[in-house]
Every structure is written in C-alpha cells, then in structure tokens.
C-alpha cells in the first residue's frame, strides 16, 4: 500500500470581493460578494514509502494548498487522502505526531529562545522518550553542523543557519515522512548544497519519504527521481525528471568547437528534427531530436564537413523546460 494515497482532492476557497472605492467599501458592510477560487480541482497521486518527490508549479498553482491538506491543517472541499492509513485532517493529532513539516518561508522554532531550548520544547511537545531524543538530537546536530548555533536565539540566526535548525527541529521526533515547502528559498549556494546533501542522505540512508516543493529546478535535478507538476489546480505531469524533459520538447543541443571561426563558417546541418541554433565565432550549436536523428548520424555528418576541436551534448536546462510547460498550459500566476 502506498504511504500517501490521494484521490480526487479538491479545494475551493470562498473569498470576499470588495468593490473599489469608498462606496464599494460601504456596500461591503452590508452585502459581501463572494467569489469561489478553485485552488485544487481534483488531484490524484500515490507516493510510496522511501520516495523523494519534487512537487513544482507556478505561484498560486496549488502546491501549498496540497501540502497543507496532507499535513492536516487544511480541510479539502472534496476527495480523499490517506497517509499511513490516517486521514490527515480527521486524525490530526495522531497524524502530525508522525510527520515532519518545514516551511521555508517561516520558522517553526521559538523566535526568542536559543535553538537548543526549542529542541527541548519540541521533545516535550512530541513526547519523545529521553533516550530516543538524545540519539536523534546528537545525530542531527552532527549532520547539520549545529553545535555552534545551539545557544543562539533563533532571531539572531542567518537564513541558512535557521533553515538547518528548522530541518533538524522537524526531525527530532523521528518522522517517517517529511514535507519540505520551499526549503532553499533565499539561501546562498553553500547553504543550498548543505540542505540538499542532508535531504538526500536522509532519504537514502534513513529511508524517510520526502515531498519537496520548490521553485529552484536545481533542487529538483539534484534530488528528485520523480517530479509532479501542478498547474491551475491539476497535476499535469507526474514522472521522472527525464520524462518531463521529453514530454515538453525532446531536444538536445550538440555543441561543436572548431579551431577557428573560418572553419565553423561553412558547417551546415540537415535532416528531420535538426536545426542550427547558433553560430558564434568558432562555436556551432545544433539542436536535434535524438529519436528522429541519432546523435551518431549527426556527428558523422559534421565530421564529413571538417574536423572539430571538441564537441559535447547539452540537455536543455530544466528551468526552460518547465517554463515552456507552464506556457503550454497557459499557467500564469493568478
């Protein structure tokens, strides 16, 4: 049985609409016009134990709504959801004691308390047995290099330090399922790498299931084998990162360097699914569809025209892939 089973999950918010101007505000006192906003329009997916799933989509697509429902702090309008056999919003207390949640946008630590006191408090709140707590705490402190931060009040931490502390805090009670909502938002390169290493380790070594939302496609490429793309409240793509690439445009780019610009000048590439993208001094970039024209054939064609100094194949950046997917489905921020 999958660890997370979601069927037909839908969420509609009713928001009050205010008419513009003073007259509108006045009328709003007596009669409020309500508008329905469909944040989720019937979402289905399964997540197996030990998976590391990326969950992406433009702002307002329904990512956070899904995470909040799965975490048990938001009720759906329709649909079912089982997490480890529990319905999150119905068995809230039992459910949340088994999961870890980290929101990149805000800390769940106590702002004025030193990090270690937040940890102690969480130990009591989650009723973690003393020995288990000691083990988890020491392991997490070592893994996330938190030792120097323990006595610092949370408000004095840098964003990267805070994120590491937040991650550790979410794992003190040893959850088997972790929700990460934009954990690398606003972090510098070093902190991002630290967070990614840690999440990967947690998933591979400790077999913790991770659901990760992010806008950083490097997170996805570095961590996730599976990615779900949501837009306008529906899952558009659910599969491997490679599959995502192929689905949008199955295209690779062959980059060929010649010794001089003169050598590059005469180069032409022909065939179905092939186009010359760019000729830049001694470099030529040729886009091709490997299903229609195998790379070897293309390279043979080029070798017949001259001897390259170097050549290599590029994947299109996944950022571009996702942007194209959003455009294809007309998904803009609403």
């Amino acid at each position: 049985m999958p660890q997370i089973e979601v069927r037909g999950l839908a969420k509609t918010f009713r928001v009050a609409e205010r008419l513009p101007g003073l007259a509108g505000a006045f009328r709003g006192l007596f009669h409020r016009r309500m508008r329905d906003v469909h944040a989720l329009g019937g979402v289905d997916f399964d997540i197996e134990r030990g998976e590391l799933v990326g969950y992406i989509g433009p702002n307002g697509a329904g990512k956070s709504t899904t995470i909040k429902i799965l975490a048990g702090i938001l009720n759906p309008t329709a649909g079912t959801c089982r997490v480890d056999g529990l319905t999150p919003w119905r068995d809230r207390r039992r459910h949340v004691s088994r999961i870890g949640v980290v929101f990149g946008q805000r800390t769940q630590l106590w702002w004025d308390l030193p990090v270690i006191e937040s940890f102690e408090l969480l130990k009591d709140i989650y009723r973690v047995p003393a020995a288990v707590y000691r083990d988890n705490r020491d392991r997490l402190i070592a893994l996330m290099d938190l030792e120097p931060l323990l006595d610092v009040p949370v408000r004095q931490l840098s964003l990267g330090q805070r994120m590491r502390s937040d991650l550790a805090a979410a794992l003190l009670h040893g959850p088997r399922l972790l929700f990460l909502d934009e954990p690398t938002i606003g972090l510098d390169a070093v902190s991002k790498l630290a967070i990614r290493d840690f999440v990967r380790e947690l998933n591979r070594e400790a077999q913790v299931t991770v659901v990760l939302t992010t806008h950083d496609m490097d997170d996805i490429e570095a961590l996730c084998e599976r990615v779900m793309v949501i837009g306008n409240g529906r899952i558009l793509v659910d599969g491997s990162v490679d599959g995502l690439r192929r689905r949008v445009r199955n295209e690779r780019v062959l980059v060929v360097d010649y010794d001089s610009a003169d050598d590059a000048l005469g180069i032409e590439a022909e065939g179905e699914g092939v186009r010359l993208v760019e000729r830049d001094a001694s470099r030529v970039r040729i886009a091709f569809d490997p299903d229609r024209l195998p790379a070897a054939t293309l390279i043979g064609q080029l070798l017949a025209q001259g001897t390259p100094h170097d050549l290599f194949i590029e994947h299109p950046p996944i950022e571009q892939t996702v942007a194209e997917l959003y455009a294809e489905h007309d998904m803009r921020e609403r």
Binding site: K68, A71, G72, I73, R93, V96, R106, I125, Y126
Partner: peptide, 12 residues
C-alpha cells in the same frame, strides 16, 4: 496567518 501552523503540533 501563521496561527494555523499551531495545528501542526500533536496537541489539543
């Protein structure tokens, strides 16, 4: 709105 996150704690 962060008050909703208090529901993440396994407490009454």
């Amino acid at each position: 709105g962060t008050v909703a996150y208090d529901l993440l704690r396994p407490l009454d």
